[in-house]
């Protein structure tokens, strides 16, 4: 990230600086960022914010706003008597650990192979593009289910599944941007200076195409968050008892029509986080077009 749009020595692309001053021109981006920061703070401060331990049964099926001798249960308790507010707070940790982790890995791999395919072209490009076509042919959830069924449900395996499914998409975008950039003068200049191809890819091209990539990364964080939530909801996510938002809905699905409060709050939590990512992406895209 650049510091408030300070000159970097390269052609500054459309969606250049990402400083707060720059963001302030887009209300959508600011609201999105505020939502994300809110959940990050909640996740970090979970041990101090949560009024009750997240996995301890206290009193079953209290409605929201209950006051008992054991304390207040603002969002009520679930079918096992666990405090929903505390579980939503602790649940933010899991999603904010696995979603960024998986997205970061997908980006690290996707950027590397995308740059190589776009810069070198030829058989490397052909091979990588055909492989990514095959992965992208799968409906994403079918691919998740297939992978999780094969290697089992655990935190690491969810990250593996998400990385496997997301990398080809990242690669495609990077490849397209690189194809466009490799004809520019600054790349020709670097080639004339005799720089190593890898240096040209990572030092010259990558910083110059970061604008669209950052927008895509925000969108992808939203999709990955949904994907991890959906896996939890389907019962293929992280193992209980530690709370995660999708898993909370899965466990109480049978009660959804009788005690909607159990499933309502985790759903609101995940929806707001995804909305934050999407608003930020949308705001950044608009700023990039200006």
């Amino acid at each position: 990230m650049t510091v408030n749009g300070a000159p970097t020595g390269y052609d500054v692309p459309a969606a250049g600086g990402l400083g707060l001053r720059h963001l302030a021109r887009s209300p959508a981006a600011l609201i999105g960022l505020a939502i994300i920061v809110f959940w990050v703070i909640v996740a970090i401060a979970a041990p101090w914010l949560a009024p009750h331990p997240p996995n301890t049964p206290l009193q079953a099926l209290l409605p929201p706003g209950s006051e008992t001798a054991r304390g207040a249960f603002w969002l009520g308790t679930d079918q096992l008597g666990r405090d929903i507010l505390s579980r939503v707070i602790w649940g933010s940790r899991r999603v904010l650990l696995y979603a960024p982790l998986a997205t970061a890995f997908a980006y690290a791999i996707g950027i590397t192979i995308g740059l190589m395919a776009g810069y070198w072209r030829g058989w490397i490009d052909q091979a990588l593009s055909r492989v990514s076509d095959v992965v992208l042919a799968f409906p994403v959830l079918v691919l998740y289910i297939l992978i999780i069924t094969t290697i089992g449900a655990s935190g690491l395996n969810i990250v593996i599944a998400v990385v496997f499914a997301s990398t080809p998409g990242v690669m495609r975008i990077v490849r397209g941007l690189t194809l466009d950039a490799r004809g520019r003068n600054y790349v020709a200049a670097a080639q004339m200076r005799g720089e190593h191809p890898l240096a040209i890819m990572f030092v010259e091209i990558l910083p110059n195409v970061r604008g669209p990539l950052i927008v895509d990364a925000c969108l992808r964080m939203g999709y990955v968050t949904i994907g991890i939530g959906v896996l939890g909801f389907l019962g293929l996510g992280l193992p209980p008892p530690d709370p995660d938002w999708g898993g909370m809905v899965h466990e109480a699905r049978a009660l959804a029509f009788v005690f909607p409060h159990i499933v309502l709050f985790p759903c609101a939590a995940i929806s707001s986080l995804v909305l934050g990512f999407n608003l930020l992406a949308d705001g950044l895209r608009e700023l990039g077009r200006q």
Partner: peptide, 17 residues
């Protein structure tokens, strides 16, 4: 933007609610 941010299971919960 708002509707595409709702995971399907979340909008199912909201609509069912």
């Amino acid at each position: 933007i708002v509707t595409t941010s709702l995971p399907e299971f979340a909008s199912a919960v909201f609509l069912a609610g």
